[in-house]
Amino acid sequence: MTPTKIFPELVSEDPAAGLRAVGVLHRLAEQVEAIHVELARKQGWSWEQIGDALGVSRQSVHAKYGK
């Protein structure tokens, strides 16, 4: 089954547009993540709890955002 049949609305004929869209979504995810990690820390979440919520290790989230 081709991707078109699964998600017809997610397919562009132009790979430049499609790949750029993936980049935008990555960026958006990074931005939403950064905002909410900070919010969670302010509300007293541990790095472990944040890591679990993001599906990554405590170490990796701390390495990325720890002060």
């Binding site: 997610l10 397919v11 562009s12 132009d14 547009a17 499609g18 750029r20 869209a21």
Partner: peptide
């Protein structure tokens, strides 16, 4: 960026 998202049928804030 917005044009690229629109090309794959998405509308998200930048």
């Amino acid at each position: 960026d917005r044009a690229a998202l629109a090309a794959v049928g998405l509308d998200a804030p930048t």
